[in-house]
Design a protein around this nucleic acid. Sequence first.
DNA 1: TTGAAAGCGTTACCAC
DNA 2: GTGGTAACGCTTTCAA
Lengths: 356, 356
Amino acid sequence: MAQSLPPRSTSAQERGSRRSARSTLSDVAHEAGVSVMTVSNFVRGKAVRVQTRKRVEQAIARLNYRPNLSARSLRLSEEYSVGIVIADSDPAFLNDPFISRLVSGLSNYLSSLDYTLDVQGVPPERFDNATILNKVGNDALCAILCGHRTLRKEHLTNLQRLGQPVVVFQEVFSSPAPNVAIISQDDLSGGRQLGQHLLARRVRSVLFVRPALDWCAIEQRERGLRSTLDGLRPAVEVKTLTAPSERFDDVQRLIREQLSKKTPGAIVAATDSMAVAALKACEAAGIRVPRDVVIAGFNGFDVWRYTTPTLTTVVSPAYEMGRHAGEMLIQRLRNGAFPKRNVSLPVRLQVGESTA
Amino acid sequence: MAQSLPPRSTSAQERGSRRSARSTLSDVAHEAGVSVMTVSNFVRGKAVRVQTRKRVEQAIARLNYRPNLSARSLRLSEEYSVGIVIADSDPAFLNDPFISRLVSGLSNYLSSLDYTLDVQGVPPERFDNATILNKVGNDALCAILCGHRTLRKEHLTNLQRLGQPVVVFQEVFSSPAPNVAIISQDDLSGGRQLGQHLLARRVRSVLFVRPALDWCAIEQRERGLRSTLDGLRPAVEVKTLTAPSERFDDVQRLIREQLSKKTPGAIVAATDSMAVAALKACEAAGIRVPRDVVIAGFNGFDVWRYTTPTLTTVVSPAYEMGRHAGEMLIQRLRNGAFPKRNVSLPVRLQVGESTA
DNA sequence: TTGAAAGCGTTACCAC
DNA sequence: GTGGTAACGCTTTCAA
């Protein structure tokens, strides 16, 4: 198509059939009988004589002109765009409420500054293949890692090498490179708050249920819980039960087995969906909640209100984390440095009927 | 910065401090001692002599070169990018499981073809302000509309004027413009399937609970339900209850009021979260499910398994809708025409304990 | 206030 | 196989 490059005057009408008549500044200028620069100035809100402006406005409307972002980016060496790569083994990676809220918060903040957000999910083992990482199309990046610690560490190293500002969520690695910042939620405190709450309920023994998955948020939750309950007199026993997968049925079965041996005073699940599985397992076993055993989880997304009894849970500030990431990246872009390289956002214990 | 345009030889190192040393084809060519075109050819997988290739590979690794997408897009008049605008009054617009799955499906498909996905949520009244619509940065667009029918119609008209391929979800408008296609799920059939199911359960009266919101999916659901239950002998009574908002507490209260007057044989809620509200209202009123009343919803996202009893629901093919949109847009881009302009994807009744 | 020219990084098109 | 050249649409710079 478009044979050996006609020298000029290709109007939007004539131009290739692919992009049906996309008009350019030059087209508008021609239509309005002014120079390209005048149109450009008008589009960018510079002062233009009223008379000229009217002509330009009409030409723009007539030609349905919209500025071309690629051309602008190329000229300005600035993309006005941020990308987020989400490593997740679930193809429906946005379905996790933590992620969906985080991305919403990020997207909204960026939109308010007329920045674009590119979203790409990727299975953890193919992380390095993500287009967003291999081509330059964003001013800055966000990443949610997953998989084994070694793998995550490796991915973080690759992110550092990109030479772009990057925000990584929910990691504990110390970040040597000045272009990387880390945003987490204070899961340690979450575990502690929950521990205190259980103490106030006079719980004597706790079963902490977690997925085998190597995920530092969960380590923090357990650590916070244990730090509050360990070494008390009279003693509070804390036992950890590790589920091979996070699948609802698997978790439910595992807990049912455990309950057949012994009923703890409390079950704390590393996530809400595991807590619901525990709830169901108790129900099936004829163990009443909260009378016979109290149950609590982590996350606080919607689910808590759907169960009977409603669930006590530690609420994640996921939306705020996304928003905060946006703020930090924009500051980094504008000022050349992150205001802070390691941020921890507060969590909040929400008491439901399951620990009443 | 970067004073009056030095003629050449600005290497990545010297270049402006903003984008710290982003290297270009020219830098790589210089480093490898070959021409720009050779590097470009290599990068795009064209044949290159082994010896040359090695040098280029090394130079790329040394300089950490990544291709610049804006330059590529500008040159090729192709962005390799799709945008999705989501009109939603909830700031956490991705939190709706229908939307999060749809976007995941779309994103994954596009990723597999090395296309980028731009995501932007926007409150319905500011739809026309979305950056994605006002600047050209994508080859094609997707849109999820919301708000009053009149408003949606207006937005659809604006989308048509964009002169880009567009896929709109869950709309019923006939689409005059050849650049717009519509993808829906078969809610009519969903309503019918549910109606049949209730008939088999010998239900005599149905309360259909819906939000006031003007949303055509919900109209279809009701129509399907009624078309199956209307005019039978003996008659099945169908009554519609409209909730002013979709808020959980509001819906719960409304249903409780209704139940205090009369208990229907079945409650069908327009969405799962409303169905859960109904479940809770029954529980609070001492009405047993499914013994005294059976309950069903629409959507089939996770929630169904969290409740007690588990929920009967009509499962939406949300992920597939997103994927399908991607396929249609890419076909449209490659072949110049949509294979089909109106697609309806099948739904599936999933029977849970709530109608056992 | 308006305009002409150069160049951002890339690729199509030739020529060698 | 390799390389020179022009152009994609835009904005900065400088001159009128």
